[in-house]
Design a protein around this nucleic acid. Structure first.
Length: 480
RNA sequence: GCUCCCGUAGUGUAGUCCGGCCAAUCAUAUUGGCCUCUCGAGCCAAUGACACGGGUUCAAAUCCCGUCGGGAGCACCA
């Protein structure tokens, strides 16, 4: 067993490119608008994997600037993110908050104005966009350093309202990449921050705050998605202004799960409107929701690390994650019968067996058998009841029968190579929460009483579920 | 439209930097067989790819040019 794992880890590491460095300091920078979800896992696990491999330092850096109206920091997100990291077995060494470092950003913001590299712009967002497109500078660009410093202090002192003034970097309005023309460094926001309240009204944008912090905290490697490649150039531009060394950038492409939507802010809206129960709703694909479904952290890690560091955009079906997870849980999950949407049928003929004995796990006989009562009246799933009318099927470990309406005419008892289905003569009410958040009801065998909450079990022919509650018996569906 | 990135089997991925050891790796998927009283697991086998077109070279998945396709950015979000 240990050998098996060692081997697998070595392969995993070889899949990642080597870093050309003997010292590694990296950071994960989640934005606290909700818990981490499977889409963030790539950023997290790649960082963690590299740092562990090089015995480096990993910093958790909450990117909690004020955000936007559509993307707000959420007070409970901070703890949910840490909870997700712990679940994923990520080791980090220090924790920082952007909102805690505002004075540092102001200090360097002022420096960059003094160096004549930035200016306070009073254009509206619309004007700015139009000029950026045309490559035209506005009149504010040519102000003197003294005027800019004065306006900057006016911004800080609250003399401008939200949207009335911003600090922009002087790159070049003719720069070929329109995205790079005089980007915004600071802007005014009158929203209340969940940690620092109304203490600040001028907030840095990520490019500036990162340029400062990545240098100040001695980052050696910066891992980010392809969607943020332009931030590389911004950071380099700012580092050059201050004459600082450049850390190395690593990029990964966009990861999409087929048929799964992964927007944190969208879920934030739905949750606040009450359309979704909470952050562990299976539809959110948050780490919390995956844990709830019985996904194992090592399966997720395996799944993600398999993609390596490629810049290719990928779309993978969730079934790939399930395949990994099955490797982890198949051997631990004991088997039980669950009859979804049960239909009662009456057996015709003599029943030979008083009890049916079925192993708890087909590959682990040492776990013993579970015993099921037999009887004339048997519940079977409606799906098979309807689909196999007139055909011979087998009640697993009990008997063969031909379905004739609500009657089951017994044809024999020996094992036979026909469809085998689960059945019960008695049982307890069981609910299964499906990945689409609907709840399927059915009958579960009485032996389920021997299980514990949090156990992962398999309902034969149905799939793996995690037990959440025993009274009432409530489970969450993981996958087949 | 402009800028940047990417393009290996159904899906991912190794190999691309430093051309030959690549008639191309591994996983997953699919199909068939074995095993198993689950549509689970396991075992064995098969299927299946270098986007296209030029060029350089004794030799190209690998280098160069072009084309096509996909993605990202062009927010006072991250």
């Amino acid at each position: 067993m240990p050998e098996f794992f060692e081997e697998e880890e070595e392969e995993e590491e070889e899949a990642l490119p080597e870093l050309d460095s003997d010292r590694v300091v990296m950071r994960m920078a989640p934005y606290p608008s909700g818990p981490l979800h499977i889409g963030n896992a790539r950023m997290i696990l790649l960082n963690d994997e590299y740092v562990k491999r090089y015995n480096g330092k990993l910093i958790l850096f909450f990117d909690d600037t004020i955000g936007s109206e559509q993307k707000k920091p959420l007070p409970e997100a901070f703890d949910m993110i840490k909870e997700g990291l712990e679940w994923l077995d990520v080791d980090w060494h220090e924790t920082y908050y952007k909102s805690d470092r505002m004075d540092t950003y102001y200090e360097y913001g002022e420096k960059i104005i003094e160096m004549g590299e930035s200016y306070v712009c009073e254009c509206s967002a619309k004007e700015l966009r139009e000029r950026r497109e045309k490559g035209e500078a506005c009149k504010h660009r040519s102000k003197t350093v003294e005027q800019n410093l004065e306006d900057w202090h006016a911004m800080l002192d609250g003399e401008f309202k939200e949207g009335e003034a911003i600090l922009r970097l002087k790159t070049d309005m003719k720069y070929p990449d329109p995205a790079f023309r005089d980007r915004v460094l600071f802007r005014i926001s009158e929203r209340t921050h969940p940690l620092v309240g109304d203490e600040y009204r001028v907030w840095p944008l990520l490019e500036f705050s990162w340029a400062i912090d990545d240098h100040l905290l001695g980052m050696t490697h910066i891992l980010r998605g392809k969607d943020l490649v332009m931030e590389d150039k911004m950071e380099e531009y700012i580092w050059d202004i201050f004459g600082w060394d450049h850390p190395e950038f690593l990029h990964y492409g966009m990861l999409r799960l087929k048929d799964v939507n992964l927007s944190k802010s969208e879920f934030q809206r739905k949750i606040s409107k009450g359309k979704i129960d909470g952050w562990d709703d299976p539809r959110t694909w948050s780490l919390q929701s995956l844990r709830r479904r019985g996904i194992q952290p090592e399966a997720l890690r395996d799944f993600i690390l398999d993609f390596g560091l490629s810049k290719t955009d990928i779309e993978v079906p969730a079934s790939k994650l399930y395949a990994k997870n099955r490797e982890s849980i198949d051997i631990v999950a004991n088997r039980y019968f669950f009859v979804p949407d049960p239909v009662e049928i009456e057996l015709q003929g003599e029943i030979e067996l008083e009890k049916a004995e079925i192993p708890r796990h087909p590959d682990k006989p040492e776990r013993g058998n579970r015993i099921l009562e037999t009887g004339k009246k048997v519940f079977i799933p409606r799906e098979e009841y309807e689909e196999y009318q007139g055909q011979e099927i087998r009640l697993k470990n009990l008997c063969n029968l031909t379905l004739e309406g609500n009657k089951g005419i017994i044809t024999g008892f020996g094992n036979k190579d026909i469809l085998k289905i689960q059945w019960l003569v008695e049982g307890i009410d069981v609910e299964v929460e499906r990945p689409d958040a609907t709840v399927e009801k059915g009958l579960g065998e009485k032996n389920l009483e021997e299980t514990k909450a949090k156990d992962i079990i398999q309902f034969e022919r149905y799939g793996f579920v995690k037990i959440l509650d025993k009274e009432p018996f409530y489970t969450v569906f993981g996958h087949r």
